[in-house]
Design a protein around this nucleic acid. Structure first.
Length: 503
RNA sequence: GGGCGGUUAGCUCAGCUGGUAGAGCAGUGGACUUUUAAUCCAUUGGUCGCGAGUUCGAAUCUCGCACCGCCUACCA
C-alpha cells in the first residue's frame, strides 16, 4: 500500500470464481440489450402492500385482485421446476414473488432461474395469498434491473464479522435488519429533536467546523491547513463559542446539530467525529434547561421506542419519572454507604479517600475538585436512571457562570443515564472580564503542557463586550443518546461509517 | 495508550497431542407447479491474515508484524 493510504486499483481487486461467473452472466446480458435499464417505475413498497392487503383473506383477494408493481433485491430464491418463489427486499421491507411459466412464459422463467441472490429486479402482477397464507405477487412481468456481481453473505446467519459490517456498511444494511432499524431510529430521533426546537421558536444554524481558534470544549483538536490562506486551521471540538456569538447578535434561541471532531482514542463510546446538539436560549438559566431536557428526552423516548420506559443492555431506564437532581456530594453519599455527608465536605477526608483509591490529586485542588474526582471514581457509573448532577467546580467549567452564593462552583449540570454523561448544560458566563481571566488560566495550562486546555479567544471576548444577555446553553451527544434509544452497546452501531484503520 | 482474545472457501463455522484442509449456505449441472433458511442427487471453489523460525514435515508449536473485537484510560 502506498504511503498516503490510497490503494492502487490493483490492490483493491479481489475476485473469485463466483464473481467471475456473475460477470460472465452480465456480459451475456450486455450482448442482448441494456443490462442496466433505467426505465422501470416502481409504484408500490413492500410494507405498504402488507399494510393495505395483509389483513384480507385468500378469497377476498381472489375476488378483487389488486395489482402491484415493486422493485427490490432478491434475498431468497426457491426454484421448483415449473414454479418459483423469490423474496425481494426494498427500503421498506420484503415481499414474496410467485413466478411460473403461466405468468411470464417459460423462456423468461428459465432466465430467472439463472439470476442470483443480490440481483435487483422489478416485478408487477396481482396479489394473492399462498396456501400457507403469505401475501405474494403472482408475477406477470419480471425484469432484471441491476446485476449483482458479488455474492451476499450467508442467507441465514448474515454478516457476523463486525469489522466487515462496519467497513462494508452497504452489505450490513442489506442483510442485517437490526442495523437498518438503528439508523432509521437515529434519523427519526434527530428529526424529532429538530422539531422540538423549531416548535419552541429556536433558529437552526450552522457555524464553522474549520476554526482558527478551536474552542468551546477541553479537548485535543485535529489540525489541518488551508493552502490559499497558508494558515493552520483546526476542526472544531465544539460550536459553543460561535453559537453564543449569535446570541450576542440577537438570535436569542439557536441550536445546531452537527459534527464535532476530537483527536482522541477510538472505543465503543468514542468516534473521532461525532454528532452534537447544542442549544442556547437567552433569558433562561440552567434550572430551566433541566426541565426542558426532561421533557425533550421523555418525548424522544416515547416517539422512538413507543414507551418512556426503555431497556438498555439489560437495565430498565425510566424517562417517565422526574429526573433526580443532586450535587456531587449528595450523589456520592446516596450511592456509597461508606461516605457520610459531613465527610464529603471535609477536605482532609476527601484527600485521604482519593489517596486510598490511588486517584491523582493536587494540593491546589479545592473541595469541589476533590468531590468531582471522588464522584467520577465511585459514583458516575452507578447513575443508571436519568440524574442531573449540579454545581461543578469553576476550575473545570471555564465557560460557565459562577454561582452567586459560592463562586467556587458554577450554575451547571450534567445529565447521567446508564452511567454515562449524556448532556452538559449551564448558565453561560457573560461577564467579559471574568471570561477573559478564565481564558488566561486555560492558556496558561496549555502553555504548561495541557494540550486539552482552551486557547485564548479574543474575538469571543470582544463579542461578550458588546453584551450577551443572560443565557443558558446545553450540549447533548447525539450518538450516545441514540445508543440508549437503540439499545446499542457500541457507538459503531449508530454511526453509519465509523472511523477504521485502512484495510 | 495498556491488557486479553480473534483472523481457515464469497458467507457461517469445524479442524484434538504437528502428517500437507472439511461441512453447511451461496455457485454450477440435474429432478421437482404454493415454497418459507424449500427439498433431493452430483459438483466447482483455499497463498489457512502477513513474515521469519523450529521440524523430515506447520492451519496446528515459537517469535515478530498487521488488522479486528472486548476490557481499560481520556472524553461526549
Amino acid at each position: 500500500m502506498s504511503e498516503n493510504n490510497h490503494p492502487t486499483p490493483e490492490e483493491t481487486i479481489d475476485t473469485n470464481q463466483i464473481i467471475e461467473e456473475r460477470r460472465a452472466k452480465l456480459h451475456k446480458l450486455q450482448e442482448t440489450g441494456n443490462a442496466f435499464p433505467n426505465d422501470f417505475n416502481r409504484e408500490d413498497l413492500a410494507s405498504a402492500i402488507h399494510e393495505k392487503y395483509g389483513a384480507l383473506n385468500k378469497e377476498q383477494l381472489e375476488e378483487t385482485p389488486a395489482q402491484a408493481t415493486v422493485a427490490g433485491r432478491i434475498m431468497l430464491k426457491r426454484v421448483m421446476g415449473k414454479a418459483s418463489f423469490a423474496t425481494i427486499q426494498d427500503m421498506s421491507g420484503q415481499i414474496q414473488l410467485y413466478i411460473n411459466n403461466a405468468g411470464i412464459g417459460e423462456e423468461e422463467h428459465t432466465a430467472f432461474k439463472h439470476w442470483d441472490l443480490g440481483d435487483i429486479v422489478g416485478a408487477s402482477g396481482e396479489l394473492f395469498k399462498t396456501k400457507t397464507g403469505e401475501l405474494s405477487i403472482r408475477v406477470k412481468s419480471l425484469r432484471l434491473l441491476t446485476k449483482s456481481l458479488r455474492p451476499l453473505p450467508e442467507k441465514f446467519h448474515g454478516l457476523t464479522d463486525q469489522e466487515q459490517r462496519y467497513r462494508q456498511r452497504y452489505v450490513d444494511l442489506i442483510v442485517t435488519p437490526e442495523a437498518k432499524k438503528n439508523f432509521q431510529i437515529r434519523s427519526k430521533a434527530i428529526q424529532i429533536l429538530r422539531t422540538f426546537f423549531t416548535d419552541r421558536g429556536y433558529l437552526e444554524v450552522e457555524t464553522p467546523m474549520m476554526q482558527s481558534i478551536p474552542g468551546g470544549a477541553t479537548a485535543r483538536p485535529f489540525v489541518t491547513h488551508h493552502n490559499a490562506l497558508d494558515m493552520q486551521l483546526y476542526l472544531r471540538v465544539a460550536p459553543e463559542l460561535y453559537l453564543k456569538r449569535l446570541v450576542v447578535g440577537g438570535f436569542e434561541k439557536v441550536f445546531e446539530i452537527n459534527r464535532n471532531f476530537r483527536n482522541e482514542g477510538i472505543s465503543t463510546r468514542h468516534n473521532p467525529e461525532f454528532t452534537m446538539l447544542e442549544f442556547y436560549e437567552a433569558y433562561r438559566d440552567y434550572k430551566y434547561l433541566m426541565g426542558l431536557t426532561e421533557n425533550m428526552l421523555r418525548e424522544l423516548a416515547e416517539a422512538c421506542t413507543g414507551s418512556s420506559l426503555i431497556e438498555y443492555q439489560g437495565q430498565d431506564i425510566d424517562f417517565g419519572k422526574p429526573f433526580q437532581r443532586l450535587t456531587m456530594a449528595e450523589a456520592i453519599a446516596k450511592h456509597n454507604e461508606t461516605f457520610s455527608s459531613d465527610e464529603l465536605h471535609d477536605i482532609n477526608f476527601l484527600r485521604e479517600a482519593l489517596a486510598r483509591r490511588k486517584v491523582p490529586h493536587f494540593p491546589a485542588d479545592g473541595i469541589g475538585m476533590l468531590q468531582l474526582k471522588l464522584f467520577e471514581e465511585t459514583t458516575e457509573e452507578k447513575l443508571i436512571q436519568p440524574t442531573f448532577i449540579v454545581a461543578h467546580p469553576t476550575d473545570v467549567s471555564p465557560l460557565a457562570r459562577s454561582n452567586d452564593d459560592n463562586p467556587a462552583v458554577t450554575d451547571r449540570f450534567e445529565l447521567f443515564i446508564a452511567g454515562r454523561e449524556i448532556a452538559n448544560g449551564f448558565s453561560e458566563l457573560n461577564d467579559p472580564e471574568d471570561q477573559s481571566n478564565r481564558f488566561k488560566a486555560q492558556a496558561e495550562a496549555k502553555a504548561q503542557g495541557d494540550d486539552e486546555a482552551m486557547f485564548y479567544d479574543s474575538d469571543y471576548i470582544r463579542a461578550l463586550e458588546y453584551g450577551m444577555p443572560p443565557t443558558a446553553g446545553e450540549g447533548i451527544g447525539i450518538d450516545r443518546l441514540i445508543m440508549l434509544l437503540t439499545n446499542s452497546a457500541s457507538i459503531r452501531e449508530v454511526i453509519l461509517f465509523p472511523q477504521m484503520r485502512p484495510e
